Every structure is written in structure tokens, then in C-alpha cells.
Amino acid sequence: MRYLNSVRVTQKAGTTMSEQSIETAPRAARKLGAVILGLASFLTAMLAAFVLPSVNSGPNQIPVGISGSIQVVGPLQETLGGDEWDVSHYASVDSLVSAIRERSVMGGLIITADGVDIYTASAGGPMAASAVTALGNTIAAKLHKQAAAHDLVAYPKDDPRGAGLSAAALPMILGGILPAVLLCRLFPGYQSLRIRMAGVLLFSLLAGAAITAVLQFGTGSLAGSYGLSALGLSLGMAALSVTLIGLEGVLGFAGLGLGGALMMLLGNPLSGLATGPHWLPDGWVTLGQMLPPGATGSVLRATAFFDGTGAGTPALVLAAWVVFGLLLVFITDRRGRWSRGTISAEASRPAHSVGNLA
């Protein structure tokens, strides 16, 4: 009888296991299909995010100044009044040069009887500077005049094309994502929030100082104040890391992945580090400058080449991201403490009940 019972139990267990395997097969197929579809969508989105800005890039409301006689400047302003240029008239050469140095305009044309003088600031945006130069040469050819180009704010001699600044985009973004991912894995739970926050802040300061030192003293890609540039870069990486830690605390691993993908897929191609913000498609310029990579690039460009002029707005954007991340961290901490208090209260109830019964 025991043998028969054991056989029946074995048969019943075998039937249950086969039924479970049959039931989980469609579920596994659906899960596999969802993973494949998600990966394909992710790669497609990544391709679109990186390719579309390049394909659709070009002059986009580039602010340019013009100085000269009203007989020449008037018709020229009407001709250039389109989507590519934002033309302003300046009464004198000095006022136009000051506007370029103060980043009110990306470049300027001074049209005189002797020729056309082209003033640019290539460190503010090499593609925009090239476009202004091409525009000046075209106008000089139409007027049958000679053109002379003057670069008021150029890249350092050791890196005249700004290759180092362009290449800094990816390390800068990874410098904000990797420490957040690593610290969240090594120190999980809301009890370790302070450790994670201290870690990302210390890393941001150290990495910002190190990367800026390489770019300024190693490759000669940056000029200006080393301290201000290092602080700006550190603020940018802290804005990324603190936000990602906050997203991980509120949404879990999905929040960490979502935040990292957003910064990589949108923040990197829309940062404008290589081209300057005025070379991106309309609307994407604003979005790129509102994300930490684009704001960090603008701060770094301002501190390194323009004595800090124009660094205020992007610095405020980065500070807002830090505050947003801290708010998420605070919510995570409050929620964790509330959950722990609830569990402790529920765990203590049976003990009180037993004591009352006794």
C-alpha cells in the first residue's frame, strides 16, 4: 500500500510539474517577445537620437551682428531675415566686437568701402563661426570687395579645432551615470542613501578636477580659470548622479535605467559640445540646453573661453537638477522610514496581544 501511495504521489507530482511547464511556456514566449521588442525599440530610438540631430543640423537662428552704412545694411538685413540668421545692427565696430565677446552674437560683419571684415568667436561654436565666415565671403563676393576674417575668441593653440572639448561629452556623461549605478548596487536600501550621496558628491569633485586638469594641462583644450571650469564640470556630473540616485530610490532599477538612457540618448547628441547650440534643429536646442550634458557643456565653454560670461543660466539649470534629485532622495528616505515604522508596529502587535492574554 505504501508503495502504491508513493507511486500515486509521484505520478500526481509529475502531472503537476508537466502542467506547470506547459503553463509557463506561453508566459516565457511572451516575456522573450517583450524583451526582443524592447531591445529593438531601444536601438531604434538610440539610432534616431544620434542620427536625426546630425542629419537635420544647420544654421538655426544664429545671432549675427552687422555694422556699416544703412544703404548696404538695410537691404542685407531683409535678405537675411529667415530661419538661419537673427540679425542685429550695430552702430560702431567697438559695439559689435563687445557684443561678440559678451556672447550677445556669435559673429559679425563690418561692411565698409574698403571691404568686409568678418568677426567670429570660434570657441563659442565652431560651426556657427564657419557659417558666419562663409556668409561674409559670399557678401564680399557680391559686393566685389575683399573679405578679412578675425577670430576674436579662438580655441587654444594646442587644440585649435576644439577636439578635446568635443570628446569630453561622453566621459562627462559616464562620470555622472557610472558612480550612481555602482553605488546603488554596492549600497542598496534607503539606509545607505547618505553613503551614496556622499560618494557621488566626492566623486564629482574629484573627477571634475581630474578631467579638467587633463583637458587644460594635458591636451591644452581649455583655457581660462581652471578652478571655475573644474567646479562647473563637477556640478554637471553631480546633477547627473544625484538625479539618477533619486530616480533609483523612487522607481527602482527601472528609474536608474530610464534616467541613464535619457541622458545618453538625448543629452549626448543634443549637448552641442562639438557644434555649438545654434547648429541644432529648432526646438532641440532648448531641450539640449535643459539637460545636464548640454548645460555642463555651456558652463565649461563659458568659463574656459569667455571669462564666465553666459555661465549663469546653465549653472542654474544644473542646480535645479541637483535640487530635483535631492527631492527624490528625500522622498525615498521618508518612504523607507514610514515603511520600516509600519512593519515594526505590525511586528509588535502579537507580542502585546500575548501579554494581554497572559
Rank of each mutant, 00 (worst) to 15 (best):
G124F: 08
G162F: 11
V322N: 12
G220Q: 10
G259N: 06
R349I: 07
T120F: 05
M106Y: 14
S69D: 15
P59D: 02
L186H: 07
A91I: 06
G81Q: 15
T219G: 01
I110L: 06
A45I: 15
S353F: 07
T15E: 13
D114L: 02
P160C: 03
G246C: 03
W85L: 09
F305K: 14
L178Y: 00
Q20I: 09
V250Y: 04
R2P: 01
A25V: 08
D333N: 02
L291P: 06
G308D: 11
R337G: 00
K142D: 13
I70S: 13
I211F: 10
S6G: 01
L270G: 09
F305T: 14
M127D: 13
S353C: 06
V242T: 14
G341V: 00
V132R: 01
I177V: 11
T303C: 08
S204E: 08
I331W: 03
L202S: 12
G38R: 02
A295Q: 07
G259H: 03
S92H: 05
D94W: 00
A315N: 00
G175C: 07
G308V: 04
A48G: 05
G310N: 14
I70P: 05
R103D: 04
I245D: 08
I118H: 06
V93D: 13
A304C: 07
V299E: 15
A113G: 13
S298D: 15
S229E: 07
P292E: 11
A239Q: 11
L39R: 01
S192Q: 13
A345H: 09
P179K: 05
V105S: 09
E346I: 09
T303D: 15
A29W: 03
V299F: 07
N60M: 11
I118P: 06
I110Q: 14
G267R: 03
G257C: 13
A180M: 05
L215M: 12
T309D: 11
S271F: 02
V64S: 10
R101F: 01
L109D: 08
A163R: 11
S229F: 03
L326P: 04
F330S: 07
A34Q: 04
A319K: 10
G249Y: 04
G162L: 12
L291A: 12
G124K: 10
F324T: 14
I177Q: 01
H352W: 09
F253H: 08
V181R: 00
T120D: 01
L266H: 00
P59F: 07
A207Q: 07
A302I: 08
A154L: 05
L287E: 02
D117L: 02
V132K: 01
L206A: 13
S348G: 12
S241T: 01
L37Y: 02
V242F: 07
G249R: 05
D151R: 04
A45V: 15
A254N: 06
F42D: 01
L228A: 14
G14D: 11
K142S: 13
A239S: 15
L251S: 00
S234E: 04
P171E: 02
W284P: 06
P160W: 02
P281G: 02
S271L: 04
